[in-house]
Design a protein around this nucleic acid. Structure first.
Lengths: 250, 250
DNA sequence: CGAGCGCTTGAGTTCCCTCAATGGTAGTGG
DNA sequence: CCACTACCATTGAGGGAACTCAAGCGCTCG
């Protein structure tokens, strides 16, 4: 079930069979299911366990006192909710399930042992955390500088590419279990305007969207149209230098 | 000269005299000056040294192909530019000096030794990195959800509070060496609109701004007006559990 | 003293928002 | 099986926030 986490980390550095097995075991010990729209962790909590998404979509979000809500990240299978829990005590934002979500719950101690046993695994997870931070920066750029059309297209590109990485796309098609209201809260637009901007993207022949499924007809063209540059996802296997030695058999 | 870094880290956890001395030494070994507007690190670089701001203001920024620029963070004295350099190879954004900046340049190895000798120092710096990530999330909320008035007020609040933390404020007054164009690129507004929104803040009696100096007349009122909640800065000394033992003399 | 830069102001326009109403679909219960 | 509800997507109309363009003013600096 932690195939997605492993698959993602392998984009950073090659892991040894033992490391993969450790991850596999660790994420199977204890799991939890969360229903759509329920909170996984709430702002102000001091989580004692580290949560990893095994299945389903979740989001980080913050709300202002008057109810305005901003979604600040999407968590896909393989994403870690709160590796920082042992250091920063209090959550400064909430995490909610979007679809039904299956989580692995891992103790801080178990992660400590894992890291002690395999520094490479620690580095791979640090890498992942840094890539996450990079995504956050790109989102600031997205809402700060891009037009509605570009913002929306950029978000769709990102979600498609991230899923492709996990092997969750089927040709140019991928899941998109978001309502237009959630998209609106993500890119800082009103629902009405998201709806109209989606129509613009559709009539430009770039995408189809409906029934929780997104089709990107011409990824290259979409990327150019919305100034999407995947560098910020750090997927170029730049972490080669961390690779585990290749077994003699291969 | 690394007084600011130490001062900041002490908001997270109490450091021992030896730890402070190590930091002091490390940041004095090799320094570098950068002129206003010059790049400190450029996107695509693979930095070999870790830079710490000792003096002056800098900013992280990203530019789109067509020239639009988004400032994604401000670096004040004591801020670390790129602790992640040893892990993520390539910079996905640039860092530029705003004022004259003095940097400490530290080798990756030296930091490695420091962390090995003092796990608490490593944790404190991790804490700092996590607080930085939290600021980034709040900025996404800022540009995504807040009105121009709130965005601008929120930014000013943050810069004031962060400087106060470093002992860089004088009553309700602090430095603000930013042009309106830089502010515009930070909060995703046009220069003209920043100018008009500043006037709104002034005529509301909340601030004075001019000559690179910001005065906040009623911080409480400003915080309320722009929905500023300092939690996201993680300054509540939540890191008590990491404290060094208090010397017997105190 | 001219040049450059940053701040300010006015006028007109565009993008995006709010309000309001409608239709489709899925789930619920009688 | 069909009302009933809730939620989501969609559309129209009108308004307001923020943008662009353009010009003028006051610094500072070579």
């Amino acid at each position: 079930m932690s195939q997605f986490l492993i698959r993602k980390l392998e984009h950073y550095a090659r892991l040894s069979a033992g490391e993969k097995e450790s991850l596999e075991t660790l994420t199977q010990l204890r799991t939890r299911r969360v229903r759509p729209r329920d909170d996984i962790i709430h702002e102000g909590d001091a989580p004692t366990l580290i949560n990893v998404v095994l299945e389903g979509w979740a989001c980080r979000y913050k709300t202002l006192e008057d109810g305005r809500r901003q979604i600040i990240a999407y968590l896909l299978p393989g994403d870690v909710c709160d590796l920082s829990a042992p250091i920063l005590r209090e959550m400064d934002h909430s995490i909610a399930a979007i679809t039904s979500v299956t989580l692995a719950e891992i103790t801080v101690e178990a992660v400590g042992h894992l890291f002690a046993a395999s520094p490479r695994l620690m580095q791979a997870l640090c890498w992942d955390a840094l890539a996450t931070a990079s995504i956050q920066r790109e989102w600031t750029v997205n809402v700060g500088q891009r037009t509605a059309f570009e913002r929306l297209g950029h978000l769709l590109c990102e979600l498609f590419v991230r899923q492709r990485l996990l092997g969750l796309t089927r040709g140019g098609v991928c899941d998109l279990p978001l309502t237009q209201a959630e998209i609106a809260d993500t890119i800082g637009l009103s629902v009405v305007h998201v709806n109209r901007t989606l129509q613009d993207l559709r009539s430009a022949g770039l995408i189809s969207l409906g029934g929780r499924e997104l089709t990107i007809h011409r990824l290259e063209a979409l990327q150019r149209a919305v100034l999407f540059n995947a560098n910020y996802l750090h997927l170029g296997h730049e972490g080669r230098h961390l690779d585990a030695p290749v077994p003699a058999s291969s």
